[in-house]
């Protein structure tokens, strides 16, 4: 890439940011970001922990939307790779003396490497077949974490690795916020440029995109690698955040939760991950007391969204102010 091309790409990101900031979603994001910045002074330590987990989950969901929503590669292996990133980071830090901050990025790299064995079938298959292959791979990794007791700590998980920032939760919070925002912006920058345009074209028709001179396999591989690596970084952050990593973090339930968030928020809109994360995660917290019954609420929510907002909450044209106005005018 030449300097000129980079300058053009950055210009494009700037102008798109300016455009998007004026939309309903943009305004909501501005409010959410402001809220996130002041969270440590507004919320109790317990609430702050929850916000931190939410931020990390949003990053994981966004990285899945990046792969599944934009390219149409409907992968089920994302939660497993999120877990791989977590295990890799803390094991590297605890057993090999890697600096914990560096280990977070290396967690992303290892998750990216773990995505390579399935990238070959994922690139060549489509639709439900991608789901089946990635689901099988996710199960292999999941059982791997249970069986490889010496490395992963087995079913009870891996603990006892160093804390970040000496356990200072406010510093940790701002670190998580900064990294999540930075990686979200990086994905946004890719998606508003040619990379995102071709990704969407591939989702609509990979044959046509290819016949128009685009190296489709290379685009898909890059997208799959980037998405998987960012999921790995999210997993590493989560491990350091909750100070344990155990097999349930990469179970299929976790994957379904990510998918529900992505779909409810909106697969075609990158911001969907933020809305979906807040709504589903928020519901889970609020409904914690009713236990398993909350799964019923989720199911109902998924049905309502797919029926009335087929493009998710972020992709809908629902305007709160206008609705209120109509209601008052009546």
């Amino acid at each position: 890439m030449t300097v000129e091309a980079v300058r053009l790409a950055v210009d494009r990101v700037r102008s798109r940011l300016r455009e998007d900031a004026r939309t309903r979603n943009g305004k909501l994001f501005a409010a959410i970001t402001a809220l996130a910045v002041f969270a440590p002074v507004m919320f109790s330590p317990y609430r702050l922990e929850i916000v931190m987990q939410l931020l990390i989950v949003i990053l994981a969901v966004a990285s899945w939307v990046f792969v599944a929503g934009y390219f149409g590669m409907f992968t089920f292996a994302h939660a497993a790779l999120y877990g791989v990133g977590g295990y890799a980071a803390v094991i590297l830090a605890a057993e090999m003396g890697v600096h914990p901050l560096a280990s977070i990025l290396l967690g992303g790299v290892v998750a990216g490497l773990f995505s390579l064995p399935i990238s070959y079938p994922v690139l060549r298959l489509s639709g439900a077949y991608v789901g089946m292959v990635t689901l099988a791979y996710a199960e292999i990794i999941y059982y791997g974490t249970i069986i490889l007791r010496d490395v992963t700590g087995g079913p009870t998980g891996y603990t006892g690795f160093p804390q970040l920032f000496g356990g200072d939760r406010v510093v940790m919070y701002y670190f998580v916020l900064a990294l999540v925002v930075a990686l979200m912006l990086a994905m946004y920058a890719l998606l508003v440029n040619r990379f995102g345009l071709v990704a969407r074209a591939i989702r609509e028709s990979s044959d046509a995109a290819q016949m128009l001179g685009n190296n489709v396999p290379r685009y898909k591989l890059t997208g799959f690698l980037v998405g998987s690596s960012i999921a790995g970084v999210a997993g590493a952050l989560q491990a350091y955040n909750i100070l344990i990593i155990s097999p349930p973090m990469l179970e299929i339930d976790q994957m379904i939760e990510f998918m529900a968030m992505g779909i409810i928020g909106g697969l075609r809109t990158f911001g969907g991950a933020v809305f979906g994360g807040i709504i589903v995660f928020g519901f889970s917290e609020v409904l914690r007391d009713i236990g398993e019954l909350r799964l019923v609420v989720w199911g109902a929510l998924l049905i309502v969204v797919t029926l009335y907002f087929p493009d998710g909450i972020a992709g809908s044209s629902f305007d709160v102010r206008k609705r209120f106005q109509e209601w008052f005018d009546r």
């Binding site: 040619r194 345009l197 071709v198 969407r200 074209a201 989702r203 609509e204 028709s205 044959d207 046509a208 995109a209 016949m211 128009l212 001179g213 685009n214 075609r268």
Partner: peptide, 22 residues
């Protein structure tokens, strides 16, 4: 080449479709 069953990038605008050729 064009295809027997047209393959426009349906969720993109006509203009965006024209940006896809490399």
């Amino acid at each position: 080449r064009t295809f027997q069953i047209s393959k426009p990038f349906g969720r993109m605008t006509v203009f965006e479709n024209m940006l896809v050729p490399n």
